[in-house]
Amino acid sequence: MNLAFDLLLIAALLWSAGRALTTPDLFRAVVLFIVFGLLMALAWARLDAPDIALAEAAIGAGLTGALLLDALGHLRGPVRRKSGLIAPSTVMSSEGAGPPAFPTYFLNGLAIVLAVALGLALAGALLLLPEPAISLPREVAAAMDASGVAHPVTAVLLNFRGYDTLLEVAVLWLALLGVLAVAGGRAPGRAPVTPRSARASLKVPRLLARVLAPLALLVAGYLLWAGAHQPGGAFQAGAVLAAAAVLLNLAGLLPGGATPRWVLRAGLGFGLLVFLAVAAAVMGQGVLLQYPPAWAGALIMLIETGLTLSIGLTLAGLFLALSGASRQ
């Protein structure tokens, strides 16, 4: 029964990924990719990895999907031709290039052959692999008491391999920098002015958005707190915060824009700065990121709180900077 379910899920994963890469319509490709992300979340649940399942659903499928769908309108829109007419083939797919020339055929064939060979070699290698010499789960279990938290994944993420996480937060912040640098070359985006008639029709959804946003805050707080002893943590909580910010933006209650003011910039840098400050402060009596055992739990919670705020702002910022920039 389990095997049948696994095989079905894997078939669906391969089908959705393959179709997302081959279907001619870009919209359909993006939707199939979101389906693929949700199926991945299921796969993670099957692999006893609920933390990844949560993150995949919220970030991998949810936020990536939102970013892709939002970009679609700008990337799929017909390319204006010199004559000013819309080329018919570009309306539907926009990929409409002519039939490829001979060398392209040859190179494409070569790439397919190489990819198939790679897949087969990988499969063979995986099946032939003996058991590993080292068992890290045992090491993790032995060190859990000293980690300051009760959930193994959080212990690895913020204590045993906390240094990876420090750099990863820098990567996320860096992506926002890059997006701002690329999108922000122009005047900052303005909040759209809503005419009176439209404002009236927005009344109810705005009310609901005002109710939902604090609820999202509550959920984020719960996820953050829960992360210490069960699946959850700063990244999942930050994703929920980001979703609330996007909702408020859609309701016109939060302006999008390409040039953040300094309070916002401080918020975006806050998580990284807290992490860096803790890393530097504990070096006074040990090495980088070596928490004193009595303080480990509290310090991890401090770092995670800072991270939740910054990750929420950054993920929302990625969305708002991208969607705000093109809407002059």
């Binding site: 927005l202 959804p205 939902l212 859609l250 309701a251």
Partner: peptide
């Protein structure tokens, strides 16, 4: 509530 709100807002935009 969330789905009604978001659908309306997306359509509105």
């Amino acid at each position: 509530a969330a789905s009604a709100t978001v659908s309306f807002l997306v359509a509105h935009r």
